[in-house]
Design a protein around this nucleic acid. Structure first.
Lengths: 201, 201
DNA sequence: ATAGTTTTCTAGCAGCGCTAGGACTGATAT
DNA sequence: ATATCAGTCCTAGCGCTGCTAGAAAACTAT
């Protein structure tokens, strides 16, 4: 192989990797949009392949399987949620107001984007969560929650545990409401009550 | 048809109905056991049919489909949970102790019987929940929770809403822990914290 | 142009929930 | 006792799923 050829093949390889990365994003966004508009049941590998205008097996050259695609969508969701939580938190003033704003943003996210929320928090997915290998976007989202919760920690409270517990409350409200186990109606009231119980006066 | 024949055919019909009801129970318990030992993924209509030693279509002469079988398992689960919550509540003394006992019983149930819990609280199932048509066993379970929660209601709190919110907290803890979103480890601490925030001193 | 590598597609597997239509069983009437 | 009829149950199969082996095509390098 000549020197010229080596350089040429390098840039060709670059282009290929770039195109490959683009296609991977295409898959993830297509999966996400399909899930959000028609639900995860509609996201079959055949349908998804048709959507991106490639054949089925290409999906498997990017992801190990359907679950891995869902996991990728989830990670994208974490980033988005982190941004929304951050916006809500920084727009509010005062510890109680910040907490309320973040809590409202959280439940609003879950109810506005149910399919995305499912991929992130209810679907069985082999993403590392409470470990160091967890995706950065996940930590970012949890971090926003933490920053809103920590100021309301009482004397002996572990701030991390407190955040987790408050999170569990929000998560319970979102999932039970969405599955019609809880009536939609009194949602605001329940949220207010939860916040009231966590804010120590 | 003679009078004798009419009486005879009546009792035959009775026996048939009895046997049918027995077989229906057989299906529900088989589904439940299979789900608890191998998870709901293992509960296929074929496998279930083999388990009860009938062919696949008999399942559909009892239930509209697989979801309806899961719903029947869920209802059975509600009755069991109600009994466990009641036992915990009546064994404890004092409002805080009762609440703690019921909360502990609830999360323990969810962690001991994950498949059952899923059918009851996470799987999409078309059971009526917060309406009058909800199965009696469901009301019983919720009632146990209510009785433990109501004593800790503050002045302006709606007891029903308060129970729902506390329930959401428990549900969040159970589901997030089970899906490894929360580490198993600090579960007791989180539960203690949740109770502490809801009990007004 | 040819050889070799890499990418992409066609075709198919095993399993899923569910169902139509025929076979079988058993009670009734002659 | 036997023929009729009703009801029960099973065999076989449909269209779908996630996933994969091996052929075909596209592209690169000599």
């Amino acid at each position: 192989m000549t020197s010229d050829a080596r350089i040429r093949s390098m840039s060709i390889q670059n282009r290929r990797e770039r195109e490959r990365a683009e296609r991977e994003q295409l898959i993830v966004t297509a999966a996400r949009e399909l899930a959000e508009t028609e639900g995860w049941d509609a996201v079959t590998t055949r349908r998804l392949a048709a959507e991106i205008e490639y054949s089925q097996p290409v999906l498997y050259s990017h992801f190990k399987g359907k679950d891995a695609i869902m996991a990728a969508v989830a990670v994208q969701g974490f980033a988005e949620m982190a941004a929304e939580l951050r916006a809500a938190r920084t727009a509010a003033e005062g510890t109680r107001e910040s907490l309320a704003a973040v809590a409202e943003a959280y439940t609003s996210f879950g109810r506005r984007r149910p399919a995305l929320y499912d991929a992130m928090f209810t679907h069985r997915v082999d993403l590392p969560f409470a470990t160091q290998e967890a995706p950065q976007a996940l930590w970012a989202a949890f971090g926003e929650l933490s920053q809103a919760v920590e100021p309301i920690a009482a004397a002996g409270d572990d701030p991390g545990i407190l955040t987790e517990t408050f999170w569990a409350g929000l998560h319970g409200l979102v999932t039970l409401t969405r599955s019609t186990r809880l009536p939609e109606e009194a949602h605001e009231e329940r949220l207010r009550l939860l916040i009231g119980r966590f804010v120590t006066p």
